[in-house]
Design a protein around this nucleic acid. Structure first.
Length: 461
RNA sequence: GUCCCCAUCGUCUAGUGGUCUAGGAUACCGCCCUUUCACGGCGGCGACACGGGUUCGAAUCCCGUUGGGGACGCCA
């Protein structure tokens, strides 16, 4: 059985790049009728935050990716790790290192500058005694040879053993570190396939050594290139929306986000639109690209508008109410309103704004529009239309259309002397949904009110 | 600095030696539809980073250059 996982560290929110990695893992598990598991990597107690965990789980809920079994928290498994660390210590695969933080800092600085470190990081590798000083536990990495593995995306990956240092597996406070616990958990959780960002490629070699030390089977690795920002560099908070939930707040549908993300670094011929079912059926990590890709908001917008168009009105109404505080559930003409709007907006947020704009009487009138369309004779048209409306009772858009037509014929005037001004009276400018639909949504009384308001402001007696 | 990864339209990508005068999508531009703005329809602009090989033949294979990215923690 295929078992995959997503293993975020709780740092505040679910990152958009993390979501794509999670999606790939989830799809692959689903496709193979396997399991997709969640593990919170919170070994660094100083950074552990409960709200962060909640935020991540919430994001998963929003996009509808369900994980199997219970969520594993590494912070609750320290005794397990301790056992394995002791085992490595006993078998001579690991050792206590008494180097101080200051000494380590010097080594690190030298490495970054490309200089020879002043102190050998393996100083205590063969030290037999015990010192009454704080220590970390390091893994004894091989001194020579090559370490290799077959990456499912990038092919065979090798590194010279001397490139891999004796890495820390337990801190001086006894807590275990990432490269160690990942292996323990992936093994105990039965992981068969690991799809993760290629920023982990280097770590894989260290992890391989741990697998080997325990004699465990090594899962299949797939290292997927990162998502870059629109400038081509690693995405960071500076780039705006990196928090998945930000997309919810901005009015994106989860399936649009998922569709967008699945096509970032993965493709299936020319296909652009994928339902969740199609993604599951068609996804295969062997089709993941080797090159990093850039985040591209226009494409996301396009997908989102596609999914909005294809959403049932009822769903849209609920989202509008729950997420944007625009409640039109009881509005008589809500179907017309939603039908009109869903065809033209890119986001739910935009839709909510449009609804507000329509349902709220205009506070002001667009200057340019007024100048262009509200000539004196036009105002008298509006006044006459107001009267004309008295013994009419249009309800649906076609009826409103007929009423306007009739009026135009009766007066012998062109549409532009009635329609744009009418629209200005309704919403304050000349842009928006079909006029007949707009009038229908507002209803005759409101239409009259708004015409009167406009006349009151511009009519000169 | 060291090691590693990558390289097709602005962007996401198809493409695995001949069917490529390189396909799709998005963005952009134009036309049509339309009282308006959008949507939609149609059309257009637009790329194999460069230089060497290999081959009858290269976007596809090899080498180098350039460019971009990543890793180098008692973070994950």
């Amino acid at each position: 059985m295929v078992v995959t996982r997503f293993a975020p560290s709780p740092t505040g929110y679910l990152h958009i790049g993390g979501l794509r990695t999670a999606l790939f893992n989830w799809l692959w598990a689903k496709k193979n009728n396997g399991k997709f598991r969640l593990r919170i990597e919170d070994t660094d107690l100083s950074r552990n935050k409960q709200e962060a965990v909640d935020a991540i789980l919430k994001a998963f809920n929003w996009v509808g990716m369900k994980w199997d079994d219970e969520v594993v928290f590494q912070s609750e498994r320290f005794d397990v790790y301790k056992k394995y660390i002791d085992e490595l210590l006993e078998k001579g695969f690991a050792y206590k290192c008494y180097l101080t933080k200051e000494e380590l800092e010097k080594i690190r600085e030298a490495k970054m500058k490309g200089e020879e470190p002043p102190i050998d990081i393996r100083k205590y590798r063969d030290f037999k005694g015990e010192l009454d000083k704080p220590y970390v536990i390091r893994f004894k990495a091989p001194l020579e040879g090559k370490i290799c593995f077959e990456d499912g995306v990038k092919g065979e990956q090798c590194v010279d053993a001397k490139e891999i240092e004796d890495f820390v597996i337990a801190r001086s406070d006894g807590t275990p570190t990432y490269n160690f616990v990942v292996v323990i958990d992936d093994h105990e959780m039965g992981m068969t396939d690991i799809i993760r960002g290629d920023d982990h490629l280097r770590n894989t070699f260290k992890q391989l050594l741990v697998y080997k030390a325990f004699g465990w089977d090594v899962p299949k690795f797939y290292h997927v290139p990162m998502i870059h920002n629109e400038k081509g560099a690693k995405m960071s908070k500076r780039d705006g929306a990196v928090d998945v939930m930000e997309y919810k707040r901005e009015g994106y549908l989860p399936e649009a986000l998922l569709n967008f993300l699945v096509r970032l670094g993965w493709s299936h011929g020319d296909q652009e639109i994928f339902s969740i079912e199609e993604m599951i059926n068609l996804f295969d990590p062997k089709d993941i690209n080797k090159a990093p890709s850039r985040f591209n908001k226009e494409k996301l917008d396009w997908l989102n508008s596609h999914y909005i168009k294809n959403s049932p009105n009822e769903r849209l109404e609920k989202l509008l109410r729950d997420d944007f505080g625009v409640d039109i559930i009881n509005h008589d003409r809500k179907e017309i309103l939603i039908d009109e709007l869903k065809e033209r907006v890119k986001t739910l947020k935009e839709m909510a704004e449009e609804i507000e704009k329509i349902l709220t009487p205009p506070q002001e009138y667009d200057e340019k529009a007024v100048k262009k369309f509200l000539k004196d004779e036009v105002l008298s048209n509006l006044r006459e239309f107001l009267v004309f409306l008295n013994d009419k009772d249009p309800k649906l858009p076609p009826e409103w259309h007929d009423v306007m037509d009739e009026f135009l014929k009766l007066k012998g005037i062109k549409p532009k002397f009635l329609m744009p001004p009418l629209r200005i009276a309704m919403v304050g400018d000349t842009k928006g949904i079909d006029l007949a639909a707009l009038l229908s949504v507002l209803g005759k009384e409101e239409v009259k009110k708004r015409i009167s308001s406009l006349l009151a402001k511009f009519e000169v007696f």
